[in-house]
């Protein structure tokens, strides 16, 4: 099977990362991937302003600040809740070295599309972009949650939701005019 090709020339990627030494490495790697525009921001407040200005197509967001507070999750919630479409639906990948099931679950519930464990290599970074592009999910707007649909499978359930999950995995549900749940 041939490898998937990604053409990132027209895309804009935002990196929210407090470790400024990593900014250059991210830039070098993403430039080598052919990414059109790369923005790196060391703080989450600055990242909100940059997000508004540049309307990126994809964002990577560190979850924890130096005092290990989950400010990155608040950032994701704010983007999901406060921004209009299509900005609120931009794919966001949460990233952290703290990968307890609690942290990953909280990132998902904040509205992250995916979670990338640190440390990661350049191959992991490329695969993560591929995954976000390929694994497209409906966008949910609810009183309690705004973000990509968290239902990826419905094990053991025999009702219509199970079929829906299968369609979702195969991508066949896209463009079919989804109805309110």
């Amino acid at each position: 099977m041939s490898e998937r090709r990604l053409d990132l020339a027209q895309t804009s990627v935002l990196i929210v990362e407090p470790n400024v030494r990593l900014h250059r490495v991210y830039r070098d790697a993403l430039t080598a991937f052919g990414t059109g525009r790369i923005s790196t921001v060391p703080d989450w407040d600055g990242a909100l302003a940059r997000f508004t200005e540049e309307r990126p197509h994809l964002a990577f967001v560190e979850v924890l600040d130096e005092e290990r507070r989950a400010v990155g999750l608040d950032w994701i919630r704010r983007v999901r809740r406060d921004f209009p479409f299509p900005s609120r639906a931009v794919p966001i990948v949460a990233s952290s070295a703290l990968t307890t099931s609690k942290t990953v679950c909280e990132a998902r519930n904040a509205g992250a599309n995916d979670f990338m464990k640190k440390p990661f290599g350049v191959g992991d970074l490329f695969r993560q972009i591929t995954r976000v592009v390929e694994f497209v999910r409906p966008f949910v707007v609810d009183r309690a949650y705004v973000g990509p649909c968290r239902r990826t499978q419905a094990e053991g359930h025999q009702g219509p939701e199970r079929r829906y999950a299968k369609q979702l995995r195969g991508g066949s549900i896209l463009g079919q005019g989804l109805q309110p749940a």
Partner: peptide, 19 residues
């Protein structure tokens, strides 16, 4: 709860066949 079609922009830009 409302479900929306995801924004196809990223997918359309990236899966053009090149790259």
């Amino acid at each position: 709860t409302l479900l929306y079609d995801p924004d196809p922009t990223l997918r359309r830009l990236v899966l053009s066949g090149g790259g």
